[in-house]
Nucleic acid binder design. Structure first.
Lengths: 310, 310
DNA sequence: GGGGTAGCGGACAGGATGTGTCCGCTACTT
DNA sequence: AAGTAGCGGACACATCCTGTCCGCTACCCC
């Protein structure tokens, strides 16, 4: 039985219960010498507890904010946001820390909000590959320190250098927006494929991101400015199609027939993604989509004719 | 610095976060031997904390209910998790509330952690359609109250009834896992397509979700148990392919040639997703994939031959 | 302004405690 | 029946914690 630890816990709860505790009183309550009380207070401070002390007569110790935080006033919206955010975060590894953080703040919430938080059950299913939290931390640090990043990229297999600009998450995946030093262009790297090397390179002066806004820049990269949008009629029930149509708009045309409007980054890509449904297709338009179908028909036929290249 | 006390606090914090902690894992996290973990658990028990333990495989320690915890502090991990979570949450209109919550929490953190939070710049780019926070709140309330939900679903256009079971978010989209009363089956509804009606229906007794675990259930729905995995050789540089290959594994075979191993929920789906690359394809295997290519070739040819059905 | 009160913190010696290692036991799952 | 995991005794060693003593500083009130 660790007398010391128990005493620290006790001290913590004493300090919680009352405004000001003279050292001598604490010493008596804890049945140790005043000197030890001082040491204990020190220890708690080392652990991060904000204990303020008043000198002179009527002096004593008091637990400051951070532990006794009724001053921590959340409104309902904030409480819900906190719960949703901490329950849905998916950055690889930090889920558990987020869960702990939620319980920690939960403790200092008024009962009403606590119930509100408890009522909110949400689960996140990871959609992307897991990300190493230490990589995330390293990237974040490099962004902040404005240090050129040296890293291995799983795709190219080569060592690359980039000026890290911003961390972005989208749909469960993490990206680093950076200026590729060697290719002299902006790139978005997938964090799960990066392995930062130490030490980092020299400092750099941040460039201005085209468009200025990171969110806009990344959204652009993903949507593709020249989006190809086409319309087809599928020989499938609308319910089946919409289940897999992603961003597409589905309209029911009959028990087993529906219209699908879908976009992609290229006409061939669009045609390919329509192929997933494995159903009879009528192309409504535009002409480019029909050409893409023809093009894919040739490719697929060629692939199917060739013997397996085991 | 009382290593032991700090460790006890940390142990409490860890035990809060997760359902079950195997002793070995705790030992690793706390950087002590498993024996010491056992001792620490004992110590906490002596101090009155209800720690239950499960023996055998999948065993571990768990903090029982009703534990009155000492004021726990944020550690570095929690601070980072808080910052990441609150900055990356995307559930509709709650971003703003999350930002306010972060400011509030930030104020009660020790300076060190505050800096840590400030250094972390992250942005979220929404990947899915926006979700109405009030819908989210209504669904969450219905889940908690165990009331049958009546709602319009954009896909079918009809009024539907379901026993709401769990809210799930995945890759920027929100889903409700529910038992469809009329179709007598489990469904995952997209929240952005739901319009709940008031009043809600009668109470229901929750059914058991097949598989028990929500995360597993949803993951299953998305991945498909019978994954079809195939291998092809593409007439494209590895770097280009891997940029769009998603979960696939890419191997460089030459300056403009690479091997791709990819999975999908059906052979046709797999063939279609390979079509996106718009490159010459050699099928390595299996035979099913080649057949899927042939099948798609016919479909695409048919679609391309038909006149536009404007 | 001075006295009293209270907290601060260095030094020191002795003893209490915490730790890793080793090992055999038990309980639960498959 | 085997394997996994938690339990807990023993032991040696290092660590730390504690009480004591003491001089110092900061603050309050008279």
């Amino acid at each position: 039985m660790p007398k010391t630890s128990a005493r620290l816990l006790a001290l913590l709860s004493l300090l919680q219960a009352r405004r000001d505790w003279p050292g001598a009183l604490l010493a008596e309550r804890l049945e140790v010498s005043a000197r030890t009380v001082r040491r204990d207070v020190d220890r708690l401070r080392e652990l991060g507890y904000p204990i303020v002390t008043a000198k002179g007569p009527d002096g004593g110790y008091r637990l400051g904010a951070g532990a006794e935080l009724p001053p921590l006033l959340f409104d309902d919206e904030q409480a819900v946001a906190l719960a949703v955010a901490l329950r849905t975060v998916s950055g690889g590894g930090i889920e558990e820390a987020a869960a702990r953080a939620l319980t920690t703040v939960r403790q200092v919430m008024p009962a009403r909000l606590r119930h509100r938080v408890d009522a909110l059950h949400v689960t996140t299913v990871s959609a992307g590959p897991p990300v190493d939290p230490s990589v995330l931390a390293a990237l974040s640090a490099a962004v902040h320190a404005r240090e050129v990043l040296r890293f291995d990229y799983a795709v190219s297999g080569s060592l690359r250098r980039a000026e890290p600009h911003h961390l972005v998450t989208r749909g469960g995946r993490w990206y680093l927006v950076a200026w590729d030093v060697d290719r002299a262009d902006w790139r978005t790297f997938r964090v799960d494929r990066m392995t930062p090397r130490i030490p980092t390179g020299p400092r750099f002066v941040p460039r201005e991101l085209p468009g200025g806004d990171v969110a806009a820049f990344v959204a652009d990269r993903f949507s593709g400015k020249d989006e190809c949008r086409g319309e087809v009629i599928l020989d499938l029930p609308a319910s089946v199609v919409s289940a897999y149509a992603g961003d597409g708009v589905v309209e029911e045309l009959g028990p087993s027939r529906c219209r699908l409007v879908l976009g992609a980054w290229s006409w061939v890509g669009l045609a390919a993604s329509i192929g997933r449904f494995d159903a009879d297709v009528e192309v409504v338009g535009p002409e480019e989509l029909k050409e893409a179908f023809a093009r894919l028909a040739r490719r697929y036929a060629a692939a199917a004719d060739r013997p397996l290249s085991l």
